[in-house]
Nucleic acid binder design. Structure first.
Length: 558
RNA sequence: GAUUCGGUAGCUCAGUCGGUAGAGCAGCGGCCUUUUAAGCCGUGGGUCGAGGGUUCAAAUCCCUCCCGAGUCACCA
């Protein structure tokens, strides 16, 4: 390690990193601080583009002076001038810098001449700069902020490691001749592992990735707005729990030192929200991170986000209404944002865009996932009782004896885990015969009694519970019950589950006496819902993997 | 857990039959005061994921391992 070039780590520096540190040294030598404290800016790139819309240079110039700050994402220097593309908030605008010592046009002199120009020449992609100047339009018509005056240019932060900016994409004709190239149009930092591990780099160079997360946030806000408008109270419940429950899942275990007790990261907040209903809050909701110590795949991450809400005096039918309304509202908001964002690129006029948004609001624009339309998404979602769905496939559960059901399983070479029960056989048949064909939104409802211990028995069929699991594009996107509130029955069901746990069955939970006590004091009838926020984001932003809607998906450490 | 594909320069990739590695962009030096694929001239850069084996010789063939992605299985 030399005194100037500290590696700051075990790995040797690349030639590019060394070059940037040399630039940094040179800038300091010029008396310029490469990491100043603040920069006052008047506008952002998106604002400037909006203001410059349809105006020529002469009209732009009289608008006055503007300033902006952002990251250098492209640099085209030519001797005593430079065109830069600056990105702020994932929007880009061109900036023009001139050495300008002998500029003819009064007032358009950068004005720092020899002093600042070496700093401009030492810029690297990824640096942050501030620019003050006037708007203009170049020969080719691109809106550009031209730096003017002694404060026209400031270095705000030096980048000493090259970002993985995409190379240009080439279009070739049959003979292999390059007939066109474009840069910064498409994401070409494609190493998927690096993108997840270094999300900051992914976001910095792939604005459309950042947009997915902006859409996700907008979506979450819509869900929250809906629930608040419906008089639900937002609450917070423990993440660290001495007894985990509310879902069948293996927990992460940790330890509290001062109390010297094991603690679990919650697998669900369900039992706490029900306690709150017992406590007299009639409508509560919570956005929660749940943690489940299970596998990772396209639709599962060990920590994931749900919104759960509980409503006193309601049942699962009421919850279906909320569920559909929330999804449709969030989807419309996301579709509108997508339309607005792409309007300029698509050449859509403001009037046409307004009509588009009205059509989206009216539900006339279909949601598309992975190239396939969800045609009934903005209509009434089908309510699909498991038994009814099977009957349509020629399997009438109620008309079949146990041995007939067992025969059905054997004939199809299905595998039933655990011991045979009619309910398990029914769900197996549903998964094998119905689920693969589910695409349009459907409330899969009225599951067998043994599927959950937290749900009320179906009012019309004692072998079922009042539960629904909505499926969209083949994905389970939530779960809801007419919540069980009979403490005697609840105790029996939970005790049975504990027994099964002792018998070695996976994924049961310990008996939560405190939860039972709350129910014994009296709990009103209620409907409860959990919505998987990550999967919702996948559906609405058209991403095929849950990792593409998580800013920092779990990765094995480097 | 099973299985398929992948890991080569900062990024994206090529690398034939085994003969000590290439391209574009990025970088570096030079020229250039309206570029936007900037252009022109010159130029540096590699523990080919790791380890072992076969061979005169391994990015390439074999074995083991690591990491990732996909598919299946698991998943109230």
């Amino acid at each position: 390690m030399s005194e100037q070039i500290s590696t700051g780590g075990a790995q040797a520096l690349t030639d590019q990193e060394l070059a940037r540190r040399e630039n940094l040294r040179r800038i300091r030598e010029l008396g310029v601080e490469p990491y100043p404290y603040r920069f006052e800016f008047s506008h952002r790139a998106a604002d400037l583009r909006l203001m410059g819309e349809g105006k020529e240079s002469a009209a732009l110039r009289v608008l006055g002076t503007y300033s902006l700050a952002g990251r250098v994402v492209a640099f085209r220097g030519s001797g005593k001038t430079a065109f830069l593309n600056i990105q702020d908030d994932h929007e880009r605008i061109q900036v023009y810098l001139r050495k300008d010592d002998d500029a003819q046009e009064a007032g358009l002199v950068l004005g720092q001449g020899d002093a600042i120009w070496p700093v401009v020449r030492s810029l690297d992609l990824g640096d942050f700069i501030g620019v003050r100047g006037v708007l203009m339009r170049t020969k080719s018509g691109e809106l550009t902020l031209q730096a003017v005056g002694p404060n026209g240019f400031e270095l705000l932060s030096k980048s000493i490691k090259p970002l993985p900016f995409p190379k240009v994409e080439e279009t070739k004709d049959e003979s292999g001749k390059v007939i066109g190239r474009k840069s910064f149009q498409s994401s070409l930092f494609t190493d998927i592992e690096a993108r997840y591990r270094q999300r900051y780099a992914d976001l910095a160079v792939n604005p459309e990735v950042a947009n997915v997360f902006r859409l996700r946030t907008a979506m979450v806000q819509e869900v929250r707005s809906y629930l608040l408008e419906q008089q639900f109270l937002e609450v917070e419940t423990p993440t660290l729990q001495a007894i985990y429950g509310g879902a069948s899942a293996r927990p992460f275990v940790t330890h509290h030192n001062a109390l010297d007790i094991p603690l679990y990261l919650r697998v669900s907040n369900e039992l706490y929200l029900k306690r709150l209903i017992a406590g007299g809050f009639d409508r509560v909701f919570e956005f929660v991170k749940d943690f489940r110590n299970e596998g990772i795949d396209r639709t599962h991450n060990p920590e994931f986000t749900q919104v759960e809400f509980y409503q006193a005096y309601a049942d699962y039918n009421d919850m279906m209404v909320h569920f559909q309304a929330i999804w449709q509202r969030a989807a419309k908001t996301v579709l509108k944002l997508k339309a607005r964002r792409s309007a300029l690129a698509r050449g859509v006029t403001p009037e046409a865009l307004e009509r588009e948004c009205q059509a989206i609001q009216a539900g006339d624009v279909p949601l598309v996932y992975q190239g396939r339309e969800l045609t009934t998404f903005f209509g009434q979602w089908e309510r699909l009782p498991v038994k009814t769905a099977l009957k349509r496939k020629g399997v009438d559960i109620d008309a079949m004896a146990d041995d007939e059901l067992q025969d059905l399983i054997k004939r199809n070479h299905w595998e039933l885990d655990g011991t045979f029960t009619r309910g398990r056989a029914m769900m197996l048949a549903f998964e094998e015969m119905v689920e693969p064909d589910l695409w349009e939104p459907a409330f899969v409802m009225d599951h067998p009694l043994e599927s959950t211990p937290l749900c009320k028995v179906h009012r019309a069929d004692p072998t079922l519970v009042e539960r629904f699991e909505p499926a969209i594009a083949g994905m389970e996107v939530g779960n809801s019950y007419s919540e069980l509130n009979d403490p005697i029955v609840q105790r029996r069901l939970l005790e049975q589950q504990v027994e099964r746990g002792r018998g070695g069955e996976d994924e049961t939970h310990p008996l939560d006496e405190d939860f039972l006590r709350a129910m014994e004091y009296g709990m009103p009838p209620m409907g409860g819902v959990g919505i998987g926020i990550d999967r919702m984001a996948m559906l609405l932003t058209d991403q095929s993997s849950i990792r593409d809607v998580l800013l920092f998906p779990l990765q094995r450490p480097e």
